[in-house]
């Protein structure tokens, strides 16, 4: 019987948490299509991570491994080869996972080789072949139907719950296949090291915009962030200006986030920024311009300069925590 196959990413022998919403989306597709859910772990030595994942089970029938020296570090070329091989070997007809930069790179390539459609950034599973996805910077929701025996999907991480452990399932190895980088070489990844939670995982996010003027001023936002145990974010204008690293950008072309609490400080609220944070539960905007569009989505809007508002807010929170 054909299967729903989720491609997982791992680090340090564990599943990367951002993959968990992708499993939930796949489980919904599995329910809607009546196909069993299977998980796939790729890597040079995927066994330890696969064992850990299989111990949790996540509602899958089995966890499969595909090992190969060219699968680490990640390249879209080798991963696409491996995904195609695994899909064929296992008889998978629905293939996907969370819309991370990894799967957004590899899955369309694999889909093209299999001549299959790919539905990107699914936010809702309507039926076994129809999915809701945001378009035009989140200003519209499109229902997309696929007419194909095999299709791919990526799930928007903020729109599905994290899959929960359900109980141990078996691990099975898929025989190795040629996975080839086509001459591409990954020379390294400059990671933004941070002791703060990942933007996509954080419960609180404090974002700064162009109005912060320079990187040094983000220190103040970091104080607020750390008091609340949150993550730091930014608008494109702030990242482009080099105030903070590019991977802190929130928006249509940055991270899509939906924390419990989102602070937009000195951010005007362009639609491309809103596209990335509109799903937040509570939005606070601090901006000196009362007409700034960010106030239209803010639950609490404060017209003020950050120079005055943020230090006072930090003081008040400190006092409360101290109490």
């Amino acid at each position: 019987m054909s299967k729903v196959l989720v491609i997982l990413e791992t680090a340090g022998g564990q599943i990367r948490p951002h993959c968990l919403p992708g499993i939930t989306c796949a489980a919904e597709i599995a329910r809607a299509t009546g196909k069993p859910l299977h998980l796939l772990v790729l890597g040079a030595q995927p066994d330890a991570a696969a064992q850990a994942i299989a111990a949790a089970g996540y509602g899958a029938a089995a966890v499969h491994t595909l090992a190969g020296p060219t699968l680490e570090p990640f390249t879209a070329e080798a991963w696409s080869d491996a995904i195609i091989h695994a899909a064929r070997t296992l008889g998978a007809s629905v293939i996907g996972g969370t819309a991370s930069s990894t799967l957004r790179d590899a899955l369309p390539r694999a889909a093209a080789v299999l001549d299959a459609p790919l539905v990107s950034e699914v936010v809702k599973v309507k039926s076994g072949d129809t999915f809701v996805r945001p378009i035009s910077a989140g200003r519209a929701l499109q229902d997309q139907k696929v007419n194909a025996g095999t299709f791919f999907f990526t799930a928007r991480g903020t729109e599905f719950e994290h899959a929960q452990p359900t109980g141990a399932v078996p691990v099975q190895a898929v025989a190795a296949a040629a996975a080839n980088t086509r001459g591409a070489v990954v020379q390294g990844v400059q990671k933004t090291e941070s002791s703060r939670p990942q933007l996509t995982e954080a419960k609180v996010i404090v974002s700064g915009g162009r109005g912060m003027r320079e990187g040094a001023n983000f220190k103040l936002l970091e104080q607020l962030t750390d008091l609340l145990g949150g993550a730091l974010g930014a608008s494109r204008a702030a990242t482009d200006a080099g105030m903070v690293p590019a991977d802190l950008q929130v928006g249509q072309t940055g991270k899509i986030v939906a924390p419990e609490l989102y602070f937009a400080v000195a951010i005007s609220g362009a639609i491309q920024h809103l596209a990335g944070m509109k799903g937040s539960k509570t939005i606070v905007a601090i901006n000196k311009d009362a007409e700034a569009p960010i106030f239209q989505v803010a639950d609490y809007g404060l017209v003020a300069k950050w120079e005055e508002a943020v230090p006072r807010l930090v003081e008040l929170i400190k006092a409360r925590k101290g109490a």
């Binding site: 390249t75 591409a184 990954v186 990844v189 991977d247």
Partner: peptide, 13 residues
């Protein structure tokens, strides 16, 4: 390349 956790440097022929 701008990836989720930083910048990856990839050389392609």
């Amino acid at each position: 390349r701008e990836v989720d956790d930083g910048v990856e440097v990839k050389r392609v022929p």
